[in-house]
Computed example of a mutant assay.
Amino acid sequence: MFDSVVLDIAIGLIFVFLATSLAITAGNELLASLFKWRAKDLAAGLRLLVGRDDGEARAGQPDITRVLYQHPLLRGLHRDAATGGDAKAPSYIPPRMFAMALLDIALRPADGTGQLVAGNIAEMRAQIESKRGELGNRVTDTLLTFVNHVEIDARAAANKLASLQRDVEAWFNAGMGRVSEVYRRRAQLWSSLLAVFFVAALNLDAIRITRSLANDPVLRASLIAQATEAVKQETPPARVTPAAPPSEGDKSPLPAPAGETAPSATAGALRQLQTDISTINQLGIPVGWEDNPPQPNVWWWVNKVLGLLLTGLAASLGAPFWFDVLKKVSSLRAAGRMPPPPDTSNTRRDQPDPA
């Protein structure tokens, strides 16, 4: 029975989970902006990729990470750099920019003048080897490996530098894949913690909400109408979640909005969080502890903790998940009942054949 009350209650509850997930996403974005997780994770991943470990530091190996950050191509990506303020580490580096900056450092003559050494394989190999003291053993050996690959690749004969740049980009993307995984795990952990906080603070009890939906047809109709409008969108009504994987070919942490400084990004995340909480309050569902004060009854507490846990676990799954579920359940409801077969019991048997 596709148009049953039970299905309407399910759609309303799923829509509440979606709204709660959006608030959690906004809270996660606010924390990421306040603590600069993207920039810190990117710097750590870059240092792991091209920097030096403890053994190399003791051996006097250089740290190319600082040199890369000061390169003109990457310097412009730093926040506040364009406005003349104190430049902060970028939260995103395009793979192409990284490859161009690293090759510019490695293939430019030591005096910093002249064109890049990219005439033939022997000259490129000699130039990179001459920069070992500046690049360090790890980066030098990696670039020499790429040069060897270009040498044996017949397709690279036309443009050796472009082929070398593609290899460096692929190397950077592979390294940044580990950064994204670390960022995802932290974001998922904080999403779970924020879900517990939001659900407990707003008293978003799944059991209590279900009872309200079952007893209030007006509330059900209101949530169904809002859910119907939401599923008309092709994408979830949400920002990209921090836990979501980056697009193909872009393995670095998710960037902050372009052109925004750290304070404005933080303020934007705070405004979005306030908007999402206000949306939850305007859904009409029972929210808050005023009309549902704690009771000394043990069973009341068991029921309350179970309802809060259900909402918290559901909301921590993320807005994209609940948006997909909402679309599927809404399409099931929109299908309606199958029309009954035509009634032929009263058809006259002596009626002439139309043929």
Rank of each mutant, 00 (worst) to 15 (best):
T140I: 09
L77Q: 02
A174F: 06
I280W: 08
M338S: 10
S330I: 08
A319F: 00
A126Y: 00
A238V: 06
K160F: 01
S278M: 07
P242H: 06
W322E: 02
G76D: 11
R178L: 07
A221T: 12
E234L: 15
A81Q: 11
L7F: 04
Q165N: 14
S222K: 13
G45V: 06
L326A: 10
R166Y: 06
Q226G: 00
L270Y: 13
P263G: 09
D216L: 05
L18M: 13
R47E: 12
R58I: 08
F146S: 04
I9F: 01
R52W: 02
L116F: 02
A355D: 14
D153L: 13
G114I: 13
N203C: 11
D41S: 10
A19W: 00
Y92G: 07
D54I: 14
K232F: 07
R66T: 14
A110Y: 01
I224Y: 05
A256R: 11
V240A: 07
S130L: 08
S130A: 15
P263M: 08
K251L: 08
E169T: 05
D3H: 07
W300F: 13
A10I: 10
E260T: 04
D63M: 03
W299F: 12
D3C: 06
A157F: 08
E169N: 04
R184T: 02
G133P: 05
Q272W: 02
P109M: 09
F146W: 07
S33L: 03
R337V: 10
N292V: 00
Q165E: 15
L273R: 11
N215M: 11
G177L: 13
A201Q: 12
T25N: 13
G60M: 06
R333P: 05
N203L: 12
D8E: 15
L7A: 09
E169S: 06
M1P: 05
L42P: 08
P296V: 09
P90D: 12
A122E: 09
A82E: 09
R271P: 00
L7M: 13
A154M: 12
E169A: 06
A187K: 04
D111V: 04
F17Q: 15
A99S: 14
Q282A: 15
V139K: 03
I24G: 03
P257M: 04
A244H: 03
R79P: 04
I207H: 10
D86F: 03
L313S: 08
I277R: 03
P245M: 05
Y69G: 01
W171C: 00
A227P: 03
R186T: 05
R349T: 12
Q272G: 07
K251W: 04
A44S: 10
L31T: 08
E181N: 07
M338Q: 09
T266E: 09
